[in-house]
Protein backbone atom coordinates (compact mmCIF):
# COMPACT_ATOMS: atom_id res chain seq x y z
CA UNK A 1 0.00 0.00 0.00
CA UNK A 2 2.86 2.33 0.72
CA UNK A 3 5.34 3.06 -2.03
CA UNK A 4 8.70 1.45 -2.22
CA UNK A 5 10.55 4.64 -1.36
CA UNK A 6 8.56 5.17 1.77
CA UNK A 7 9.14 1.61 2.86
CA UNK A 8 12.82 1.72 2.10
CA UNK A 9 13.48 4.58 4.46
CA UNK A 10 12.01 2.86 7.46
CA UNK A 11 12.67 -0.85 6.89
CA UNK A 12 15.88 -0.97 8.85
CA UNK A 13 14.36 0.85 11.78
CA UNK A 14 11.37 -1.45 11.82
CA UNK A 15 13.52 -4.55 11.91
CA UNK A 16 15.68 -3.14 14.67
CA UNK A 17 12.71 -2.23 16.76
CA UNK A 18 11.17 -5.65 16.38
CA UNK A 19 14.32 -7.20 17.73
CA UNK A 20 14.32 -4.91 20.70
CA UNK A 21 12.04 -7.10 22.75
CA UNK A 22 13.63 -10.44 21.96
CA UNK A 23 15.57 -12.29 19.26
CA UNK A 24 13.60 -13.45 16.27
CA UNK A 25 14.18 -15.37 13.08
CA UNK A 26 13.71 -14.00 9.57
CA UNK A 27 10.38 -15.55 8.80
CA UNK A 28 8.98 -14.42 12.11
CA UNK A 29 10.09 -10.84 11.45
CA UNK A 30 8.34 -10.72 8.11
CA UNK A 31 5.15 -12.13 9.53
CA UNK A 32 5.24 -9.80 12.53
CA UNK A 33 5.52 -6.71 10.36
CA UNK A 34 2.59 -7.90 8.32
CA UNK A 35 0.51 -8.69 11.38
CA UNK A 36 1.17 -5.51 13.31
CA UNK A 37 0.53 -3.31 10.36
CA UNK A 38 -2.71 -5.03 9.68
CA UNK A 39 -1.46 -6.15 6.30
CA UNK A 40 -0.66 -2.63 5.12
CA UNK A 41 3.07 -3.18 5.30
CA UNK A 42 4.63 -6.21 3.72
CA UNK A 43 8.23 -7.01 3.06
CA UNK A 44 8.81 -9.77 0.58
CA UNK A 45 11.57 -12.24 1.20
CA UNK A 46 13.85 -10.87 -1.54
CA UNK A 47 13.71 -7.48 0.18
CA UNK A 48 13.67 -8.48 3.82
CA UNK A 49 16.46 -10.99 3.81
CA UNK A 50 19.11 -8.84 2.13
CA UNK A 51 18.24 -6.10 4.61
CA UNK A 52 18.81 -8.47 7.47
CA UNK A 53 22.20 -9.36 6.04
CA UNK A 54 23.07 -5.75 5.57
CA UNK A 55 22.21 -4.98 9.17
CA UNK A 56 24.29 -7.91 10.28
CA UNK A 57 27.27 -6.83 8.21
CA UNK A 58 27.05 -3.43 9.81
CA UNK A 59 27.22 -5.05 13.16
CA UNK A 60 23.83 -3.88 14.38
CA UNK A 61 22.33 -7.32 14.64
CA UNK A 62 23.85 -10.76 14.99
CA UNK A 63 22.46 -14.02 13.74
CA UNK A 64 22.85 -17.30 15.54
CA UNK A 65 21.64 -20.74 14.64
CA UNK A 66 19.58 -22.07 17.49
CA UNK A 67 17.67 -25.25 17.87
CA UNK A 68 14.70 -24.87 20.12
CA UNK A 69 13.20 -28.00 21.62
CA UNK A 70 10.72 -29.57 19.27
CA UNK A 71 11.65 -27.28 16.38
CA UNK A 72 13.98 -27.05 13.45
CA UNK A 73 17.20 -25.13 13.54
CA UNK A 74 16.66 -21.51 12.70
CA UNK A 75 18.79 -18.42 12.51
CA UNK A 76 17.75 -16.07 15.27
CA UNK A 77 18.77 -12.46 15.10
CA UNK A 78 19.34 -10.24 18.06
CA UNK A 79 20.31 -6.63 18.62
CA UNK A 80 23.91 -5.83 19.37
CA UNK A 81 24.79 -2.94 21.67
CA UNK A 82 25.65 -0.92 18.59
CA UNK A 83 22.28 -1.84 17.17
CA UNK A 84 20.52 -0.65 20.24
CA UNK A 85 22.22 2.68 20.07
CA UNK A 86 21.38 2.92 16.39
CA UNK A 87 17.74 2.16 17.08
CA UNK A 88 17.46 4.92 19.67
CA UNK A 89 19.10 7.32 17.30
CA UNK A 90 16.93 6.35 14.36
CA UNK A 91 13.74 6.62 16.42
CA UNK A 92 14.65 10.10 17.47
CA UNK A 93 15.43 11.08 13.92
CA UNK A 94 12.21 9.57 12.66
CA UNK A 95 10.09 11.32 15.23
CA UNK A 96 11.81 14.60 14.59
CA UNK A 97 11.19 14.11 10.91
CA UNK A 98 7.49 13.49 11.46
CA UNK A 99 7.18 16.58 13.62
CA UNK A 100 8.99 18.67 11.05
CA UNK A 101 6.82 17.45 8.22
CA UNK A 102 3.71 18.11 10.26
CA UNK A 103 4.89 21.56 11.14
CA UNK A 104 5.57 22.41 7.55
CA UNK A 105 2.31 21.12 6.29
CA UNK A 106 0.34 22.84 9.03
CA UNK A 107 -2.94 21.56 10.51
CA UNK A 108 -5.03 19.69 7.93
CA UNK A 109 -8.22 21.20 6.77
CA UNK A 110 -11.02 18.78 6.83
Amino acid sequence: MFSAELKKGSSEMLILSLLEARPRHGYEIGKLIQARSGGRLTFALPTLYPTLLRLENRGWIKGRWIEKPGERRRCFYRLTPDGRRKLVEQRRTWEAFIDTVKAVMGPSRA
Partner: peptide, 17 residues
Protein backbone atom coordinates in the same frame (compact mmCIF):
# COMPACT_ATOMS: atom_id res chain seq x y z
CA UNK B 1 26.26 -22.03 2.62
CA UNK B 2 24.75 -20.05 5.44
CA UNK B 3 22.67 -17.87 3.19
CA UNK B 4 21.37 -20.85 1.25
CA UNK B 5 20.51 -22.65 4.42
CA UNK B 6 18.64 -19.72 5.81
CA UNK B 7 16.67 -19.10 2.64
CA UNK B 8 15.65 -22.71 2.47
CA UNK B 9 14.65 -22.55 6.11
CA UNK B 10 12.41 -19.60 5.43
CA UNK B 11 10.88 -21.17 2.37
CA UNK B 12 10.11 -24.19 4.45
CA UNK B 13 8.40 -21.93 6.99
CA UNK B 14 6.22 -20.50 4.27
CA UNK B 15 5.40 -23.97 3.07
CA UNK B 16 4.40 -25.16 6.50
CA UNK B 17 2.38 -22.06 7.12
Amino acid sequence: ARILRELSSQLEDFYRE
